[in-house]
């Protein structure tokens, strides 16, 4: 029995090690390439792994104020922070109303939002562009515009959070109300402290989304490089012919973005797991 166990554990480890290699390989490549000099060893994704000489050229380029990289980085950070905070507030508000209160039109609202979610988002892109333009929130004003777009309709994503609220016994609310608390107090004093994991989960997911937002951001900010976010700016480095030899700079930039987010993510991983698991069960 124990021999069989040993063998099966051995196979298990072997598989896990292979999986780990596959999963880590691209990141290792990314790190290695970011240390290749774009001056001495030009080219895109060269077909060898280890750079011939170790160099910090790409990083020097990014840290040079002329490259605007940190402006884009800052833009994204601002967008991500605001969207994260405001979206969390919106989601909590909607979730509380839908989970704890019964009002006319509640069923209709939930069903209506479900149907709306089935329309592909790009459909509304051009329309949103002109809508935002009317308020001066495109191009030069693209950052507040992107924040607005990021959180304004986020109430629709209440599922996970509402599912979590549903699991908190209603008897707690009732007890508090008997003690004289109104709903606002129940919500802010009792329910929110109980919902720490889901709040962190919502905020974390909302925080990570803007780092990837290429489509909308490039549309809203077009032709005004001061309002680009990192995704828009760096996507050009690999996808358009105007930027020759930016590949290693892309890798370096990608790394500078990935490292802080990964660290943040790892620290909050516990809550993230709780959120996705809860979300999956509640649908």
């Amino acid at each position: 029995m124990s021999r069989r166990n040993k063998i099966s554990n051995g196979i298990g480890y072997a598989i896990l090690i292979v999986i780990s290699i596959i999963w880590l390989f691209p990141f290792v490549c990314l790190v290695l390439q970011s240390f290749r000099s774009y001056i001495l060893e030009p080219g895109g994704q060269v077909n060898y792994l280890l750079p011939k000489t170790f160099s910090l050229d790409s990083y020097k380029f990014l840290f040079d104020p002329e490259s605007k990289f940190f402006r884009w980085y800052g833009n994204t950070l601002i967008i991500a922070t605001f969207v994260s905070v405001l979206q969390t507030i919106f989601v909590l508000m909607v979730s509380y109303a839908l989970s704890r209160m019964r009002f006319k039109g509640r069923e209709f609202l939930m069903r209506f939002w479900l149907v709306l979610g089935m329309f592909p988002g790009f459909l509304s892109m051009i329309c949103l562009y002109f809508l935002l333009k009317q308020f001066g929130l495109t191009q030069a004003g693209a950052i507040p515009g992107l924040i607005l777009i990021g959180f304004a309709s986020s109430g629709m994503g209440y599922y996970v959070c509402k599912g979590y609220f549903d699991t908190i016994p209603k008897s707690l609310d009732e007890a508090a109300r008997i003690d004289g608390a109104n709903r606002f107090q129940v919500f802010t004093i009792m329910l929110i402290p109980l919902s720490k994991p889901i709040i962190i989960y919502t905020a974390l997911v909302a925080f990570m989304a803007p780092w990837c937002d290429y489509i909308f951001a490039s549309y809203i900010a077009f032709g005004y490089s001061d309002s680009y976010n990192v995704a828009v700016a760096m996507y050009r480095w690999v996808m358009t012919n105007d930027y020759q030899g930016y590949f290693t700079r892309f890798c370096a930039g990608g790394l500078l973005i990935a490292v802080p987010i990964t660290i943040l993510f790892m620290c909050l991983q516990k809550y993230y797991v709780e959120g996705v698991t809860g979300g999956a069960v509640k649908g």
Binding site: Y129, K133, Q139, F222, G223, N241
Partner: peptide, 21 residues
């Protein structure tokens, strides 16, 4: 002066003449 690729420039101009360069 903004860096906008020659390929993107036309598309962007067509999308929104008033907002374009």
């Amino acid at each position: 002066v903004e860096p906008v690729g020659e390929g993107d420039a036309a598309s962007n101009m067509i999308t929104d003449v008033e907002g374009g360069a």
